[in-house]
Design a binder for these strands. Sequence first.
DNA 1: GGGCTGACCTACT
DNA 2: CAGTAGGCCAGCC
Length: 126
Amino acid sequence: MDRAEKATFTTTSDFDRWVRNVWQVVEGIPRGHVLTYGEVARLAGMSRAARRVAQAMRRAPRTRKLPWHRVVNAQGRISLPADSPGYRQQKQRLEEEGVVFVKGSIDLDRFGYQGALDHLLWSEPL
DNA sequence: GGGCTGACCTACT
DNA sequence: CAGTAGGCCAGCC
């Protein structure tokens, strides 16, 4: 079922096109929500390219103002060394948007893109 | 061409 | 919950 999809990029321009898709997907993440690397990869058209998502974001020009901080790993944790400036910046930006960290990780059921929708639909009214 | 490195992921202990 | 193992694939020696 996932076989229909190419496993690798045949040309570098293929990869470049996919990178543009990644940027668009990331730009489409609503404020206050997050997406995992794997989800971004899949939405951009390459489910197995999670590791390449990080590459794509580093490649983005600053003028693009990419909300890279809204991308986290599948455990809902920031994929940067906890003592790095990048980690602190990402966490701070997310918290400014209302994302809550519990013991260093985000509840993806509530703050994930799709998870947020499910939460609104299924959670008990206050 | 071969080997190593990642802002990763899933499955299993 | 923490740690390990195998899989993944573009980029850089």
